[in-house]
Each structure stands twice: as C-alpha cells, then as structure tokens.
Amino acid sequence: PEARSEEVMRISSWLPPSHVNTEIFPTWIEWIEEATDGRVTGKIEYDLASPPDQIDIVTDGAADASWIFHGYNPGRFVTTKLIELPGLLADAEASSVAHQRAYETYLKDAGEHEGVVVAAMMTHGPGQLYMRTARDGLAALDGAKIRIGGGVSADVAEALGMVGVQVPAPQVYETLSGGVADGAMMPIDTNKALRLYEVTPETYIMPGGFYRGSFALILSEAFLARLSDEDREAVLSTTGERLAAMAGAAWARADIAGLELVEEVTSMHTFSDEDQQTFAGISAGIRQETIDAVADRGVDAAAALEMIEETARAYVQ
C-alpha cells in the first residue's frame, strides 16, 4: 500500500507493454520521482480507452497522462502534419526535438491541444515500404495495394497512385499474409514489433522516409492542479525538449533494432536516384498543400517548417 502523501500519476497506454513505451514511461517516471523527492510517482495502465479517445480521457481527468497519435484525430490536428512531411534526413530523436521546438515557437498558437498540457512532442522514425514481392522501382508501385495509417502517409500513397488499404495496426500482419494488401508503409521498428518481416521479404528504403508519425505526450490539467506548487514545478521541469529527446531516442533505438533485423532477414532495396528525384517532385506538392492547410490555422507554416529542418540538421551534426 502506498503512503498517503504520495501522488500517483496514472499514465494511460494504448499499446501493450512490449512497445517502445516500456522505455519512455519508466524513464519519465524516474525523472519525476527524482525531481519531487519521491512525492510523485507514476503507474502505467493499459486499455483505459481506445487510441482516438486518449486525449479525451486526459481532458476529462480519467487519466493523468497519456500519449496520442495525432493522425487518429483527423480534423482536429493539422499543424502537427508539418513534421510528418517526407524528406527530413533525421532520426526519430532529431525530429522529435525539432517537432518540440516548432511546437513551442509556432504550432502551440493554433490551440489544437487545448484542454490538456503538452509534456513533449515526439515522432517515430522515417516510414518505409515493405512488400510481399519485389517491385522494379517507384513506377511499379502504381496500383499496388498498400496498408497505410493516417495523416501524411495517406496523402503520399494517393500521390504515388497506390491503393490505400485501411486496417488497424493489429491486423496488418494478416492483411499482408493473406494478400489483401501487397505491402505496408510503416516505421521500420514495426518489422520487429508486428513481425512484418515474416510476410514482407522485400524492404524498400526511401532516404528521409515516405512520412513520419507525429505524437504527443500529454498531462491532465486536473492532475497538475492536484499537486502542490513545488511538485507541479518539479513535474513540469521534466517536460519539454529533454523529454522529447529521450522519447525520440527510444524510437530511434527501436528503429535500429528493426533495421538490423530487416537487413538480416529481408532483401533491402534503396530507390534509385531517379526515383528519389521523382518522389521529391511528388512530395513538393504534398508539402505545399500541407503548408497551406497549416497556415489556415493562423500559424506561420513556412517559418515553422524551416525551424524543423534547421533544428534537425543541427541536431544530426
């Protein structure tokens, strides 16, 4: 039984303990315990709500913290699509830090996270393509049935002439093994987490990725209000860029493990220079559309994107 004076931050997670959040949350909890001299601690709870409802349970105070994938709430989150644009040559750690800085300086003003406190923004690594059978370059992907998530990945698939197959993550494996989809576009760590490598022996790498996913770690206002001023300050001191970097690094490590695996057991293909050129042309269109949509929310999209690219470049060096 826990001591009366100890506050427990109940963290809701919508993916099982085996996921990358096993690294992120325990480390964050350690930081919080350290900062508050053990007066505040944390506990992970699974299956409290569906993935799209995670932001709601934190808003309502049913959970004290959670992590959300912005692509699951289309219509609400638009500015977070900037980080998802293809072509950013950075790992998950660099792009998470870039995302966090852009959020603090520009994206915050759009007020899309109203009702919760953003602890940190983060992204997974570049999304790549995994196919059941070998394809001869980008042109051969026209008409291919590809499993996609949401957000920018859907725009990319459409622009490439792919046929989007929409199934939730736990079903990706069967969708592929049965041939309902010819391939999937996902971050490379899913090869390990979802055992995709068993059904997609051909891995296609687009430098900078086809997209990347935008996430946020969020805190409930009611939880922060429950803490003493001192503890609230201490908990908030664990958030921000440091947390973004830690989370991004965990995603990056998962990607490295995933990459090692696909290099060992699948045949790796990198798109030719010509294909990369073609894709850059296609991405330019998506980029402009996204900038326009973000600007509609009253955010200086071009400046935010520049900051993202600048930060990521500096971080890599």
Partner: peptide, 19 residues
C-alpha cells in the same frame, strides 16, 4: 476510485458507447 469525479467517469463511458 476517482473521488466521485463524474466528468472523469461518464465522459469516457459515453466515449465507449460511440467507440
């Protein structure tokens, strides 16, 4: 278990219905 916070209880329940 949530100090009789009805918003924290009933809003997620309604979310479950829709979901």
């Amino acid at each position: 278990l949530n100090d009789w916070n009805w918003t924290a209880t009933l809003s997620p329940a309604a979310g479950t219905v829709l979901d």
